[in-house]
């Protein structure tokens, strides 16, 4: 598969700069990434880019932690994304988000319900239920956390992801970049991953797919029901042999389920 995606930087009226992964052709699809970040090599986005024009903004904080000074609450982040979409001249679109990005895709769709025609939430975070205690990802050392992310931690894709996370051309800068991501995510998920999304879910009017990995060791699959209960007309789909990192571990299935949902 040829790489059709690339990065571009956009200056925003807020004074911030947003890096966006984009490319492909077709109607616009916005994707908000997980804690791991996003790159033009993302296999899930590449697959989708054959049918859609992809827009995947890098979350504020990921490239520069100082940006977080302007992101005091989730509302600031939603407004930031609105700035990005205005500059990209995106008015109405389908939206997908994974994990941390799933939380903000839901937030955006709750803040601007009329602009999202279809929504796909892939193992989103942002909800808390005392009866379903999720792992404290911030208090779990990386090597203990990693096996919880996969249905099969020994698979080729899991090994490759681990290597990419810890290595690269410059392991120190790879680590720093990973840390910037976790610090950003932590700002909105610590100490409890609940910034009030459950109070706003009812506002989402887009037909919504909630997709979960059956063996998700980070956010138990039972959390899918909290989302489907909160979003009228939403539907749940659970992928077998799949952990938290849905688009990496089950790229094909994730892509075909999301495609089917968006084109229905």
């Amino acid at each position: 598969m040829s790489n059709t995606l690339h990065c571009e930087n956009y200056d925003l009226p807020s004074g911030l700069t947003s890096e966006v992964i984009l490319g492909g052709s077709g109607p616009p699809l916005v994707y908000l990434h997980s804690a791991n970040g996003v790159s033009p090599a993302d296999p899930f986005l590449q697959a989708l880019s054959e049918h859609y024009s992809i827009y995947a903004p890098v979350a504020p904080g990921y490239n520069d932690l100082d940006e977080l000074h302007q992101m005091r609450t989730v509302h600031d982040v939603v407004l930031h994304y609105d700035d990005v979409f205005q500059v990209l001249e995106l008015d109405s679109f389908v939206m997908a988000g994974q994990s941390f990005g799933g939380m903000f895709a839901a937030e955006f769709a709750a803040h601007y319900p009329k602009r999202i025609s279809k929504l796909a939430l892939l193992a989103p975070v942002g909800m808390w239920d005392d009866n379903i205690p999720a792992v404290d990802m911030f208090a779990t050392p990386p090597l203990e956390l990693d096996p919880l992310l996969w249905a099969d931690p020994t698979s080729e894709v899991a090994n490759a992801a681990r290597e990419a996370m810890l290595g690269g051309d410059d392991p120190v800068e790879s680590t720093i970049s990973l840390m910037r991501g976790l610090i950003t995510v932590g700002k909105f998920l610590m100490p409890i991953p609940d910034r009030g999304l459950h109070r706003r879910l009812y506002r989402i009017s887009a037909p919504t797919l909630v997709l979960w990995g059956e063996q998700d060791g980070l956010v138990p699959v039972a959390y899918a029901d909290l989302f489907t209960r909160g979003i009228a007309g939403s539907k749940k789909s659970v992928l077998p042999d799949c952990g938290h990192l849905i688009t990496l571990e089950r790229t094909e299935e994730a892509m075909s389920q999301v495609m089917r949902h968006f084109s229905a």
Binding site: F138, A139, P141, V172, T175, I176, I183
Partner: peptide, 22 residues
């Protein structure tokens, strides 16, 4: 001490972390 509590990302500034790693 449980190591998960001592090494939380972001407790140290990026500059201190980079200096330590380097």
């Amino acid at each position: 001490w449980y190591p998960g509590f001592t090494n939380v990302p972001g407790y140290m500034s990026i500059e201190s972390m980079r200096r330590g790693l380097r």
